[in-house]
């Protein structure tokens, strides 16, 4: 009996086996290896890399650039996730009820998803050029021409938090169409009978949204936060292409690259990588558990 059942599932397992092995090695094996480096003293190529416990995980916080890169990363994340959610939700809200040209609007809002962060960086670097006054170009020039000169600013060269907020802007431009598509699918997924029932009960359109539609969008919101958040915590290409390795806008992923390539410090680089992984895992793992469970219930 047991034999017969094994004959049923064994071929399937064998077919998936190559992928299981690859994922086991490249995802989980390498994560383990990375932790091994992070727990070692391999600060130079010639170091043997002996085990030193968690000292890198505490010492890294003594490196000023690391702390500031974490702060920069958090500001970027707040502005990017918040901005893309608000804009994406607003666009979906505007498109929920039938509107002329819906397909074209969607196509326009989504096209930035098809291009690379580096290409986005090229054009936004130009748009966010910092000179003011008669040397102003990019958006600063546009503001001046439109009589909005007071909006001129230093963008990513600012010495306050607005430098990271500026860098989040192209990311919002690139990703909010995606969030729009997710929310629009969410809006459309609310059964029309539910809305109709509320209307029959005398609710106006605003109340229909507030009390009927919005509560149904919670899973979409959660999914959006996860997608945006995990992109944000590892952001690299966009920041790097616009402002290189400038300390002013350094984020954890750039810090890691610097330590490994410019200083040959694998141990601290691996520690930075491990922290980025932990930051992502903290919210992705519970999400995945929730997701797999709710799939099973279906």
């Amino acid at each position: 009996m047991r034999h017969a059942r094994a004959r049923n599932w064994l071929p399937g397992l064998l077919l998936v086996a190559p992928s299981i092995i690859l994922v086991a090695i490249f995802v989980y094996g390498l994560i383990g290896w990375n932790f091994k480096v992070a727990l070692s003293d391999q600060h130079h190529d010639y170091d043997v890399g002996k085990f030193v416990g968690t000292e890198n995980f505490s010492n890294i916080w003594d490196i000023r650039v690391w702390s500031s890169s974490v702060k920069n990363g958090l500001i970027f994340t707040l502005v990017f996730v918040g901005g893309a959610l608000l804009l994406g939700f607003f666009l979906a809200f505007l498109m929920d009820k039938a509107i002329k040209g819906e397909g074209s609007f969607r196509a326009v809002y989504l096209f930035p998803m098809a291009i690379s962060f580096v290409a986005t960086g090229v054009v936004w670097k130009w748009l966010m050029a910092s000179p003011h006054g008669k040397d102003a170009s990019g958006l600063n020039r546009l503001f001046a021409d439109l009589g909005l000169g007071s909006l001129q600013n230093d963008w990513y060269n600012s010495t306050t938090w607005t430098n990271m907020a500026s860098l989040a802007l192209p990311a919002v431009w690139q990703m909010s169409g995606y969030i729009m598509a997710l929310f629009l699918a969410g809006f459309r997924g609310v059964p029309e009978e539910l809305r109709e029932a509320a209307r029959v009960d005398g609710a106006n359109e605003w109340k229909v949204y507030r009390y009927v539609v919005l509560p149904q969008l919670r899973p979409v919101l959660l999914t959006s936060v996860i997608i945006l958040g995990h992109i944000s915590l590892k952001i690299f290409d966009l920041v790097y292409s616009i402002n290189g390795k400038s300390v002013n806008t350094e984020v954890p992923a750039i810090f890691m690259w610097q330590r490994v390539y410019d200083r040959g410090d694998a141990a601290i680089g691996a520690t930075a990588g491990a922290y980025i992984l932990l930051a992502v895992a903290v919210f992705v793992v519970p999400y995945l558990v929730w997701f797999v469970r709710s799939e099973k219930k279906r």
Partner: peptide, 28 residues
Amino acid sequence: WRFPGADVVFTLFLFGMFIPYQAVMIPL
């Protein structure tokens, strides 16, 4: 053509979708 433990494998695959490549880059 599910096999015993397919759910676990699937979940472990899914996590692979989200890992930041920085966490595997040095060993890779």
